[in-house]
Amino acid sequence: MVKNDFFRNLNHLLRELPKKERDEILADFEEHFTIGSNEGKTEEEIIQELGDPKDIANAELADYYATNPARQGGATSATRSLLLAMVLIFFNLVVVAGPAFGIFFGFIGLWVGAICLVISPLLSLLSYFQSGFDAFLFTFFVSLACCGVGLLLSIALSYIGKFLWHACVGYVRFNMDLITGRKRS
């Protein structure tokens, strides 16, 4: 780790603090680095002596939240959470549930289609028993092409699946945050 990493790291860990506080903290370390390198120390040595940025950030955050409580007014927050939960349930049932189910079953349907395409060369064997070798050859090559399309579709679907999963998790988390009143940054 070099100086830049140290600062980027520390800045990131302190992101909850107001910019003014953060700048003050970083300026102190900037001074420390300047003096240290004037005395002939390398950036690595200075970082080594300073220790883990996480420990520094934790101490700063603890001090900050000790003097600036994160949230005020806990009395009304329970009623607020309950009301919000009810509104959210209603909203989710009426507005979100329909499209979400639609997308879910559409996704399943596409997967079934993709799987059918992939195994279509196997099915083409049937035409061998029904209509002889020439017809089989034709259907076989057509089905090979289908198989390729099916594979491509599966790859696309697995990406789409991942995206949908993340969207789902994100949406649930967003709901939870709304209810508990927690803020993420």
Partner: peptide, 15 residues
Amino acid sequence: VAEGTLYPLLRRLTK
């Protein structure tokens, strides 16, 4: 001591 943790301490004592 991890020297870095002295700075939070100094800031707190100053505040």
